[in-house]
């Protein structure tokens, strides 16, 4: 009996993977701001699904998969923070530049294009965008600094993101 349950289970997971893997990776990349981390966490989420033992209590496997993945992403962000705090303790006397391998040098003209696009926006939109997307501060901290509600910060960031994305697109696509 347990064998039957397991085989059904595995095929369910395979189907989930086929149908939703791309969306899952996109969801995780959004959370983690890193495609490679997203791929790792997605794999871990499928493993969790395969080894779960309370399948009957779950109404939607897909919902459950995204929930597990979301929680794993939160763990991953927490670990990242601990790691980087530790790195500071370790390298207090070292200059703090390019210590992480995943720095992308942006072409000068692309940075110039971005600056240009940001200048076209209301000051609050570009400020919220730079603090969140470039500087990596969370919405709560940006809201506090700008003395705005988090909802307004999200509104500004979304507006600026769409604007900059569209502007950079114009340049990239001939």
């Amino acid at each position: 009996m347990s064998t039957v349950t397991l085989s059904v289970h595995v095929s369910d997971i395979e189907r989930l993977f086929r149908e939703h893997n791309r969306a899952l990776i996109a969801f995780l990349q959004c959370r983690l701001n890193s495609l490679s981390d997203a791929q790792e966490v997605a794999q871990e989420a499928y493993l969790r699904m395969l080894t779960m033992d309370n399948r009957e209590e779950v109404d939607s496997l897909r919902g459950y998969l995204f929930k597990i993945a979301g929680n794993l992403a939160i763990d991953r962000l927490r670990k990242r923070k601990v790691r980087s705090d530790f790195a500071i303790v370790q390298s207090q006397d070292e200059p703090m530049d390019e210590q992480s391998p995943d720095h992308h040098a942006m072409a000068v003209e692309q940075v110039a294009g971005l600056r240009h696009a940001l200048r076209e926006l209301p000051a609050k939109a570009s400020q919220a965008f730079v603090m969140h997307v470039i500087e990596g501060r969370d919405f709560g901290s940006v809201a506090q600094t700008m003395k705005l509600s988090e909802r307004m910060v999200r509104y500004h960031v979304a507006h600026a993101l769409a604007h900059c994305r569209a502007r950079v697109d114009e340049k990239e696509v001939p």
Partner: peptide
């Protein structure tokens, strides 16, 4: 996602300038 990831990992000089 790709756009935001790139912007979140800019080189130090571009990042600080922005």
């Amino acid at each position: 996602n790709a756009f935001a990831e790139r912007l979140g990992h800019l080189d130090r000089v571009s990042r600080q300038a922005l």
